[in-house]
């Protein structure tokens, strides 16, 4: 008998899984419905005309207001980074989905066979430099920005930063 497994959450970025989007390949843009799998970083595209699921490897894609860029080469597994800020420098987020499987014991009333979770890590890409991972702390951000004067808003004396504060700091650095 076929076994049905039920997981809490979804491996996909959006719900509904397919949302209106734009693929960017060699500076050309194509509209299609896009599903982005955060576990595998596979991008699926469905055109209105045929509704067939195509696995694609765009240089970048947009879903709604979110834009993702591919950073790995054509070899190796693709990794897409969400663009949070794009000036001279960039602030990127890598969103990684994970399936945590739970053992569903017969005598226990576990509702799910597993849970999809997502983790975000942040990167700063300075002009003509490789992206560098940062944590949401003043120390970590200043290490990458390598700035003599503190570009972070003076009201934030705490060491922990929010994502908007990280973006603000990089935008201030860009001037």
């Amino acid at each position: 008998t076929p076994k049905t497994t039920v997981y809490l959450g979804s491996p996909y970025l959006t719900f509904p899984v397919y949302e209106d989007g734009v693929l960017e390949v060699n500076h050309y843009q194509t509209s299609c419905k896009i599903a982005f799998n955060l576990v595998t970083h596979q991008v699926l595209c469905r055109f209105e005309s045929d509704s067939i699921e195509h696995a694609v490897l765009p240089d970048a894609f947009r879903v709604g207001a979110q834009r993702f860029v591919r950073k790995s080469g054509p070899q190796g597994p693709p990794v897409y980074y969400k663009v949070l800020y794009a000036g001279k420098s960039k602030v990127l987020a890598q969103i990684k989905g994970t399936l945590q499987e739970t053992k569903r014991e017969a005598y226990r009333l576990e509702e799910f066979d597993g849970i999809y979770t997502r983790q975000e890590r942040y990167l700063i890409e300075l002009e003509n430099k490789a992206p560098q991972a940062v944590t949401l702390s003043r120390k970590s951000v200043l290490r990458v920005l390598d700035h003599t004067s503190d570009p972070l808003p003076s009201t934030t004396l705490k060491n922990k930063l929010t994502v908007p504060e990280l973006i603000e700091a990089v935008a201030a650095y860009d001037g």
């Binding site: 076929p2 076994k3 049905t4 497994t5 039920v6 997981y7 809490l8 959450g9 979804s10 491996p11 996909y12 719900f15 509904p16 899984v17 799910f112 999809y116």
Partner: peptide
């Protein structure tokens, strides 16, 4: 697999076989 909202409005992924 199918992604949908369950009876409680939670997002779930259901896979068969």
């Amino acid at each position: 697999c199918v992604v949908k909202n369950d009876y409680a409005g939670r997002l779930v992924t259901i896979c068969n076989g």
